[in-house]
C-alpha cells in the first residue's frame, strides 16, 4: 500500500518557546479518510501548517507520496491541496477569479483552468455566485469556495483543517457527502475536526493529538470497540413504577423522571434484554437514544490518560 503522507519525529518550537509538536510520527495510507483529533492548542493546525509549508518545522521530516516536502517542494505541492481553518482569500475578488488564480499558480492553461473552475464551483453549489465578490458570500459558501480552490489542481491528497466549523447542519451533511464522494474517487483525505461525530461518520482511521503528542493512532472501528459501556435514554409511554429495577446485574437503571429512564449497558451486552424486561413489566418504550457521543467519551478518556 502506498503511503500518502509520512511524518517522522516532527518537532515544532515557536519563537516564544512554546513547543507545539513534541516529536510526532504518523502515517496515512493512500485512499484513506483520516481524522486528526485534538483539543484547541493540541498541535493539529501546526501539523497541517508544517505539511503545507506554511510553518517552518524545528526538526523531523514530512514526506508526501514518498517525497520529502523540503527537497521535493514542487512535486509534493502538486500532490496536495489545503483547506485552512480561517478564510484566506482576498475579500475583494470575484469567486471565479479566486479559483482561476489558484489554477494559474499551479500552471494550468487557461482553458483547462476554466473547465476545472466550472466543475468544482458547480459541484460545490457556487456556480451561480461565480461573478460575485467573495466578501458577499455566507460563511458556509466561503468554506466551500476554499474547497473548490484546493481541488482545482486535482491533488491526490486533500487536507482540511476544521472544514465544517461554524457551518449549519444541512450544509455540513452536504459537505460530508461531497468529501465522501471525492474520497471514493481516490482522493486521500486528512481532516481535523472538533465535531467528533464528523470523524465517526467519515473517517476510517484516526489519530488523537494532545499537547503536541499523538496519544492514539488506530482505526475508528478498533477505537469504538474500546468502549466498555454505553448510556441509553429511554422514553416510556406510561409511568415507571417506583422501585422498578432490572434483573441483570451489569445494567444500571436510573429513573430521571416518570417517563424518562437512563440505562447503562456494559460492553458485549445486548439491548434486547432491556426491552424484554420492560415488556414484562408492561412498560412500552416510545423512543431510545444514545446519551453521549460514543467517540466523545473515548476522546475524553484518551486525553485524561495523557494528562
Amino acid at each position: 500500500m502506498t503511503i500518502a503522507i509520512s511524518i517522522q519525529n516532527l518537532v515544532k518550537t515557536y519563537a516564544n518557546g512554546f513547543e507545539a509538536l513534541k516529536g510526532i510520527s504518523l502515517e496515512v495510507e493512500q485512499g484513506d479518510f483520516f481524522a486528526l483529533l485534538g483539543p484547541n492548542g493540541a498541535g493539529k493546525s501546526t501539523t497541517i501548517g508544517v505539511i503545507s509549508t506554511l510553518v517552518n518545522k524545528t526538526s523531523g521530516s514530512v514526506e508526501v507520496f514518498g517525497k520529502n516536502v523540503d527537497t521535493h517542494s514542487y512535486e509534493t505541492k502538486l500532490d496536495f491541496g489545503v483547506v485552512p481553518q480561517e478564510v484566506n482569500f482576498s475579500q475583494f475578488e470575484k469567486v471565479r477569479d479566486i479559483v482561476m488564480t489558484q489554477a494559474g499558480y499551479y500552471g494550468l492553461p487557461r482553458k483547462l483552468a476554466a473547465e476545472r473552475c466550472e466543475k468544482y464551483l458547480r459541484k460545490l453549489g457556487l456556480w451561480d455566485k461565480r461573478d460575485e465578490r467573495s466578501r458577499s458570500l455566507s460563511g458556509g459558501m466561503k468554506r466551500r469556495l476554499m474547497i473548490a480552490r484546493a481541488l482545482v489542481h486535482e491533488p491526490r491528497l486533500l487536507i482540511l483543517d476544521e472544514p465544517t466549523a461554524g457551518v449549519d447542519i444541512e450544509l455540513r451533511r452536504s459537505m460530508w457527502e461531497f468529501l465522501t464522494e471525492i474520497n471514493e474517487n481516490g482522493t486521500t483525505i486528512i481532516l481535523t475536526t472538533h465535531y467528533l461525530e464528523e470523524a465517526e461518520q467519515l473517517c476510517r482511521n484516526i489519530a488523537i493529538i494532545d499537547e503536541g503528542r499523538i496519544v492514539e493512532n488506530t482505526s475508528m472501528r478498533k477505537l469504538l470497540k474500546e468502549l466498555d459501556s454505553q448510556v441509553y435514554i429511554l422514553e416510556t409511554n406510561s409511568q415507571v413504577p417506583a422501585g422498578f429495577s432490572l434483573k441483570q446485574d451489569n445494567m444500571v437503571l436510573n429513573i430521571v423522571d416518570e417517563n424518562i429512564i437512563e440505562v447503562t449497558v456494559s460492553g458485549g451486552q445486548s439491548v434486547n434484554s432491556v426491552f424484554a424486561e420492560f415488556s414484562e413489566a408492561d412498560i412500552k418504550i416510545d423512543s431510545m437514544r444514545n446519551k453521549t457521543n460514543r467517540l466523545e467519551q473515548l476522546f475524553m478518556s484518551k486525553l485524561e490518560g495523557n494528562g
Partner: peptide, 18 residues
C-alpha cells in the same frame, strides 16, 4: 502586505510557484 493581512499570500505559499 494586503495579501499578508488577508492571509491570501498562503494561496501562493502552498502552491509550487518558485
Amino acid at each position: 502586505f494586503s495579501h499578508k493581512f488577508q492571509r491570501s499570500v498562503e494561496e501562493l505559499l502552498v502552491s509550487p510557484v518558485p
